[in-house]
Amino acid sequence: MKRAQFDVARKTIYWMIAGIVITLVVIAFAFTLGSYRNKLTQVAPELRAELLSLRIVHNPYCFVWIDKFGVVHEGIIDLTKFTSAQMDLCYAPEKERGFQDFNFRLRLEQRGVEVMSNNYFHKDDFTLFKEVLVRDSQGVVIKDRLIIYVEEKI
């Protein structure tokens, strides 16, 4: 009789523990599948940043030089437009939530000038480089390197 009671008690404790473990295993399995799905749909941040930075040297609403005939000269940066105000016209994340998006610091290496987007907090995740031409207010064009410091999100 006592042995039978002992067996029942032992089985009860065993199944309590087994039930908890099995539940945890099933939940972990569900999380593993969810995590795998997130990995499948992830876009490399370097790719996103590269596509976002295309506008910097190609879009006339950003820093590209437009001559007096209205011709857009891609790859030539107008130094007179290389300002924070122009950056706000080119790429401006929302002020309240912009820190959750990509932010950039642009630096012309030889000129030593910098502009930043409105939610940039100096947390550089990686860097992109673009060879560009820079035209100043006198019309002098020199070769330079544009360094794009990318901040993914805070």
Partner: peptide, 12 residues
């Protein structure tokens, strides 16, 4: 979204 970013990078 990437297509949109690319189109913005095209001047014309």
């Amino acid at each position: 979204r990437m297509m949109m970013d690319t189109l913005v990078g095209v001047p014309g």
